[in-house]
């Protein structure tokens, strides 16, 4: 596998959410707003890149039988670091993500990449793998959150001042709003249905590719 393939595989071919169906809790829970999805992506990026590099660096000295507990301790340490940095510099985001920051420890993609890739490959390849994987994951997170926030509230608000609202954009008055924005999409039920549809559409595209080949 070339470095380029290694980097690109996380975006579509082995996309952790849409194709491998790993780590589905976070994309369901924290995608109510784009802001949360961006924050989560940043945390995952920090943790996955560092954990892949560290685990790849220590892979030769870790005894095989106890590798999983060691990986978990490395990951938990990084997540605790991320938790503290977040609480110090972005307190409001850290509050709205809540316990989902610490649940990154048990996010399948982190341990999954450690076990499936970083424990078998050198540091550079593991770094490239981590960056590709986490970017692919983050893009899907952000996509879901954009769909949910627009359908749920009619607009997007990021960090308070960067915002737009379709109702204002088309000069709709309070009693003449667009009828298709519903709070439903922000509720858990909406999350499940949108993720289900996205994975289904990804399957449709993947099937077409197979046919044309």
């Amino acid at each position: 596998m070339t470095k380029r393939e290694n980097f690109l595989k996380g975006f579509w071919k082995e996309n952790q959410i849409l194709v491998s169906l790993l780590g589905l809790c976070a994309p369901l829970a924290i995608t109510t707003t784009v802001e949360n999805a961006l924050g989560m992506s940043a945390i995952l990026m920090f943790v996955l890149i560092l954990s892949n590099v560290i685990i790849s660096a220590i892979r030769k000295i870790v005894p095989n039988q106890i590798r999983i507990p060691i990986f978990i301790v490395v990951i938990a340490t990084l997540v605790t670091l991320a938790e503290m940095i977040m609480a110090a510099f972005l307190p409001s985001l850290s509050k709205s993500l809540g316990m989902w920051i610490s649940l990154v420890v048990v996010n399948c993609i982190i341990l999954g990449r450690a076990e499936a890739f970083a424990s078998k490959n050198n540091i550079l390849d593991s770094l490239i793998d981590a960056i590709g994987m986490v970017l692919g994951y983050a893009l899907v997170l952000i996509l879901i959150s954009i769909i949910r926030e627009i359908l749920g509230t009619g607009g997007i608000t990021v960090w308070g001042d960067l915002k737009f609202n379709l109702n204002d954009l088309f000069n709709r008055s309070e009693d003449n709003k667009f009828p298709f924005f519903s709070h439903f999409f922000v509720t858990p039920a909406g999350a499940y249905i949108i993720l289900g549809l996205l994975i289904g559409f990804a399957n449709i595209i993947n099937r077409k590719k197979v046919v044309t080949k």
């Binding site: 509720t187 499940y192 289900g196 449709i204 099937r207």
Partner: peptide
Amino acid sequence: VPLPFKGVPIALIMAGLMAMIFA
């Protein structure tokens, strides 16, 4: 079920319907 939706996608949509009921 349409073939691309078999398995996990339809299961997620079904979970969504269940979540509506439980809410």
